[in-house]
Amino acid sequence: MDLTIHTTVLPHDDPDASLAFYRDVLGFEVRSDVGQGKMRWITVGPAGRAGTSILLAPPAADPGITEDERRTIAEMMAKGTYGWILLATPDLDGTFEKVQARDAEVVQEPTEQPYGVRDCAFRDPAGNLVRIQELR
């Protein structure tokens, strides 16, 4: 088998706000943007590295999800306990400074973790946790 990890999905609740965060704050390129209103599927990823993408998608779009489940997902997103992702960079401090300068919500300043990584964390506009670790 020859598999790569190609696209991971994060929910949005305001597509324009999420797009602005991933494109303008994190500097990702926009690879596709389909749908309209709240039902938009936006693919973003690091410029020059087409092999991995994040798909920003409306949550609970699957028609098999019940109203109760839909409400729970929306509440977990608002609480910040639903989606999260791990990114990485060789320049953690520079990245942190740049992202912080764009008024992103900081959850954790660069910190040495006991499990052997140094990382920081931000909150995206939809409540997803974006953790960034240092490549070393």
């Binding site: 929306a74 509440e75 608002a78 609480k79 910040g80 919500e105 900081v106 959850v107 954790q108 300043e109 964390a121 909150r123 409540g127």
Partner: peptide
């Protein structure tokens, strides 16, 4: 209103983390 309250609480919790 509930979602908006939760989003405010998330910012409180993030502040505690930070």
């Amino acid at each position: 209103q509930r979602l908006s309250d939760f989003a405010r609480l998330r910012r409180v919790r993030d502040r505690i983390d930070r």
